[in-house]
Simulated scan of single mutants.
Amino acid sequence: MKKVLITGANGQVGNEMTARLRKDLGRDNVIATDLKIKEGSANATEGIFEELDVSDAKRFRELAHKYQVDAIIHLASLLSVSSEKDPVFAWQLNTGSIINGLEIAKELKAQFFFPSSVAAYGVDAMPRFNTPQDTFMHPITVYGASKYAGEMLANYYHWKHGVDARSVRFGRLVSYKVRPGQGATDYAVAIYFDAVLKSSYECYLRPDTMLDFTYVDDAIDQVVKFLNTPASQLKHFNGFNLTTFYATPEDIANSIKKIMPDFKITYKLDPVRQEIADSWPQHMDDSWAREEWGLNPKIGLDEMTEIMLTNLKIKLKAEGEIK
C-alpha cells in the first residue's frame, strides 16, 4: 500500500485506521471519506477528507481515480440492529457498496479490503465454540447475510478478475474513542462509558452471552499486517477469523470491578439483540489467520479494561461530563 482511500472514516474502525495509516504512509497518502465532514475532527484537519456516499458509484470512482489509490479500505456499512430496521436499504447499501469498490479496484488494479463479521455465520455453524473458518454459513440477519455475500463477491472478483480482495471476520471491537452505536453487542463499549459516568450499567444481553472481542488497536495492527502480507503467502484471501479473547457481560463486569469495586451491573433483556447475539459463534477458530499471515493480537480483557477506564475518565472529563 502506498496510497489508500478509506470509506466510513468517521466510524469506530475508520477513525483508528485513518490515523494509523497516515502515520505509516504520510498524511497526503490517505484519503479519508464519509457521508459528511466532522468539523474539527482529526480526519478533516490532519489530512485529505472527501465527502462520499458509497452507494454513489460515480462519485466513488471519481475519487479513487482522482487520487490514483492503490488500495481501498471499505469500512462503510449499516450495522446489525439498524439493518434489521430497514433490511432493503441495508442490503442495497452494504452489498452494493462492496460491488462498487470491487469494480473500482479491478479498474485501478488496487487492493480491496472490507471487514466481514462473526454475524456471517448463523445459528447452525458448528461447533458453537472454536467455530472453524470454513463451515456452514447461514446468517439469520440481513447484516450477516450482506457480510457473507461480500465475502463471496470478493472471492469472485479475486478468481475471475485477479483483484487482490481480502476480508477478516471481526467479533466485537472495543474502543473508547467512539461512542456505542446500534450494533447488537455495543454493550461492550457502553458498559465502560456507564461505568465511568454512573458506576453502573443495565445490560440488554444475558449475563452468560459469550462472544469474541478484540481491542481496536489490536485489530488495526492485525489488519495492517494482513494487508502487507504478500499474496503469494496466502492460501485464502477472505473470511479470516480475527479475535483475541472471548467473554460474557459478567466477565467484563468482573474485570471492571477489579478497578472499580463499587460497579454494579443489572440486566434487562432486549429480545432482538439477544436473538442476534445468539446466532453468532461463542468463539471463532482463528488458526488459519495465525498460520497464513501471522495473526498475533496481544491485548486481553483486563488490559483492555484498564485502557478503556483510564482513557474514558480523561475523555469524559475533557468533554465536561464528569469532574
Rank of each mutant, 00 (worst) to 15 (best):
K298I: 06
F112S: 12
Y156T: 07
M304N: 11
G183H: 08
K177C: 08
D270A: 00
E16Q: 14
L75Q: 07
K317R: 15
D212M: 00
T45M: 05
G144F: 06
K109P: 06
D278C: 06
E321K: 06
I322G: 04
K258L: 03
P297R: 13
N296P: 06
D56E: 00
L5Y: 06
A44E: 08
V13M: 14
Q222C: 05
E250L: 13
K109I: 07
M137H: 08
I276M: 01
A9Y: 13
G150Q: 07
Y67I: 04
S80D: 11
T7K: 02
A71F: 12
D302M: 02
Y148C: 02
A145T: 02
V118F: 07
A277Y: 02
Q12V: 08
F193P: 01
P207A: 10
A253R: 00
W280M: 15
S116H: 04
G8E: 11
K198I: 00
D286M: 09
H161S: 01
P115D: 12
A120P: 01
E107T: 07
T214A: 12
E275C: 08
E275V: 00
I73L: 12
V168N: 15
A219M: 15
K198V: 00
A19I: 03
T135A: 12
K38W: 08
K225M: 06
S97W: 01
E275N: 10
Y67H: 11
E202C: 15
V123D: 09
N29E: 04
S255N: 05
A190G: 10
A90T: 02
G26M: 01
E303W: 02
R20I: 09
D124W: 09
D212W: 03
T244W: 07
F213W: 01
T244G: 14
N311H: 09
L301M: 14
I276R: 04
M152K: 13
P139S: 01
S117D: 03
S82Q: 15
D70V: 04
N130L: 15
A71H: 13
D221Y: 10
R172V: 11
H158T: 07
T141K: 03
Q282C: 10
H65K: 09
S199T: 04
L301V: 09
A119L: 05
P297Y: 13
I31D: 01
V272C: 05
A190K: 14
F245I: 00
H74I: 05
K177A: 13
R22P: 01
T95W: 08
R273A: 04
V13D: 06
M1H: 04
S80Y: 05
L234F: 02
S175H: 11
A76F: 12
I256L: 03
I104Q: 14
L227Q: 05
D221F: 08
G171K: 04
W159H: 13
Q222A: 09
D164E: 08
Y267E: 11
K38D: 14
L269N: 00
I276S: 10
T214G: 04
L211D: 00
Q92L: 07
G101T: 11
A318I: 08
E291P: 03
L78P: 05
S255T: 07
D302I: 01
P207H: 12
Y201I: 06
Q12R: 12
V88K: 14
E321N: 11
I98G: 06
Q233D: 14
